[in-house]
């Protein structure tokens, strides 16, 4: 069990440090690349929760799709328009409000996680495939949500093609 704990704390550290990097770094590009390590760490935590399919999907969707999109956006705007994107500093008043709000959310989250009855499961137990279960649920119980999501994506796809075509 000790090995499991070590791996958990390793991934948790990666997530926390890199998430700190995303929030605190002044350069947008550093934030975007820190996000890579955050996603990686989160998917590692998913693996520890025996959710292998979700972990791989996390990498697939967030690293392969969304992160590449973010980096493209930042990269093109910085290099082509010549404007160096940096986040500025706020005044003391705004900082105070933001700090209080973050603290309130953090306290709320901690209280909530202390009071929730989490599902306990032996983490090292051999798990059977999760793909079949997810697929079965998607096409029976959550078919409507699945269909709506598919149509939403199709609409976004056609819309993007239309906007790109007009120029």
């Amino acid at each position: 069990m000790a090995l499991y704990d070590v791996i958990f704390y390793l991934f948790a550290t990666i997530v926390l440090v890199s998430a700190g990097g995303v929030v605190f770094s002044r350069k947008m590009m550093y934030s975007a690349f820190s996000l890579l390590f955050t996603f990686f760490g989160v998917s590692g935590l998913y693996v520890l929760l025996s959710a292998d399919f979700i972990a791989v999907t996390q990498i697939m969707v967030y690293v392969g799709g969304i992160l590449v999109l973010i980096i493209f956006g930042v990269m093109l705007t910085t290099k082509i328009t010549g404007v160096d994107i940096k986040s500025g500093t706020l005044g003391a008043f705004q900082m105070g409000i933001a700090g209080l709000a973050s603290l309130a959310i953090a306290v709320f989250m901690i209280i909530m996680s202390m009071n929730t009855q989490w599902m306990q499961k032996d983490p090292l137990a051999e798990t059977s495939t999760t793909v079949e279960a997810i697929g079965g649920l998607l096409f029976t119980e959550y078919l409507l949500a699945f269909g709506v999501a598919a149509i939403l994506l199709l609409v976004a796809f056609i819309g993007a093609a239309l906007i790109a075509r007009r120029k």
Binding site: F33, L36, V56, T57, I59, M60, V63, G64, G65, L67, V68, I71
Partner: peptide
């Protein structure tokens, strides 16, 4: 298929 995304990054 998913880890090939790291190469792009």
């Amino acid at each position: 298929f998913a880890v090939s995304a790291f190469a792009i990054i």
